[in-house]
C-alpha cells in the first residue's frame, strides 16, 4: 500500500475548510475522552493524512505537555499539515462542536442531570468509547510488530501509569531514556 509522504507539496492539497470539517467531526464524536482513538481512525486510517509514527509522536508530546492530550495532538496534526493556520483551523474545528453541544445541554439542564436513564445511556456510550481507546492502543502495538524491547516498554507504561497509577511524568522520564537507547541500539544493529 502506498503511504503518501507528508511534505509540503503533498499537504498543500488539504484545504483549511477540509481540515476544520474533519476535526469538527472528531470533536462531536469524542465521547468519554476518546479523541485519540477517533483521530487515529479518521486521520490516520481513513484519510491517511499522517502516518502511525507521526500520530504516536504527536500523541506522546500531546500527553506530556500541559493541557488536553486530544487538543494538543490536534494542534500538532494541524501544524504538520498546514502550519499555524492549519493548527488553528483544526483546534477550532475540534472545540466548536462540543462547545455548542455543552451549552445546549446546559440550557435544558434540569431534565438532563437528574434523569437516571440518561446517565445510564451515557455510561454505555462511555464504555464503547473506552473500547475504541483500547483498540487503538492495541492496534498501534500490533502494527509495530514489536520486538521484545518496545513491547516491554509499552507493558511497563500500562502497568505503572494505568494499573498502579504512578504519576505519568516521572514514569516517562525513567522509561524514555531506556526506550530511546533501545531505538538507537536497534538502528545500529540493523546498520551493522
Amino acid at each position: 500500500m502506498i503511504q503518501p509522504t507528508i511534505d509540503n507539496s503533498c499537504s498543500n492539497r488539504i484545504g483549511l475548510p477540509a481540515l476544520f470539517v474533519a476535526f469538527f467531526r472528531l470533536g462531536v464524536m469524542s465521547f468519554g475522552g476518546g479523541t485519540a482513538g477517533w483521530l487515529y481512525r479518521e486521520i490516520v486510517e481513513r484519510r491517511r493524512w499522517i502516518d502511525d509514527m507521526q500520530f504516536l509522536s504527536g500523541a506522546a508530546l500531546g500527553r506530556l505537555m500541559p493541557g488536553s492530550g486530544g487538543v494538543n495532538l490536534t494542534v500538532q496534526v494541524g501544524q504538520l499539515l498546514r502550519g499555524s493556520s492549519g493548527a488553528m483551523a483544526a483546534a477550532l474545528g475540534l472545540l466548536s462542536g462540543p462547545l455548542a453541544i455543552v451549552l445546549a445541554l446546559a440550557v435544558s439542564y434540569t431534565q438532563i442531570s437528574h434523569n437516571v436513564t440518561v446517565h445510564a445511556i451515557l455510561d454505555g456510550v462511555a464504555a464503547a468509547a473506552i473500547g475504541l481507546t483500547f483498540a487503538t492502543g492495541l492496534k498501534l502495538v500490533r502494527f509495530r510488530r514489536a520486538s521484545a524491547g518496545p513491547l516491554a516498554v509499552t507493558v511497563a507504561t500500562v502497568l505503572s501509569v494505568g494499573v498502579l497509577r504512578w504519576p505519568m511524568i516521572p514514569v516517562v522520564l525513567c522509561l524514555a531514556p531506556i526506550s530511546i537507547g533501545l531505538a538507537l541500539l536497534d538502528r545500529r544493529g540493523r546498520n551493522a
Binding site: G32, G33, A36, G37, M53, L56, S57, A59, A60, L61, R63, G69, H119, A120, D123, G124, A126, A127, A129, I130, T133, F134, T136, G137, L138, L140, V141, R144, A146, P150, L151, V153, T154, V155, A156, T157, V158, V161, G162, V163, R165, M168, V172, L175, A176, S179, I180, G181, L182, A183, L184, D186
Partner: peptide, 26 residues
C-alpha cells in the same frame, strides 16, 4: 527519540483508557 517514544505513547493511550474506566460511575 520518536521511535523510543512510540511504545510509551501506545502505553499511555491504553493507560488513559484504564483511567477513564476507573472513574466511570457505571
Amino acid at each position: 527519540v520518536e521511535r523510543g517514544l512510540a511504545p510509551i505513547a501506545a502505553g499511555l493511550i491504553l493507560a488513559g483508557g484504564i483511567a477513564v474506566m476507573r472513574v466511570s460511575p457505571g
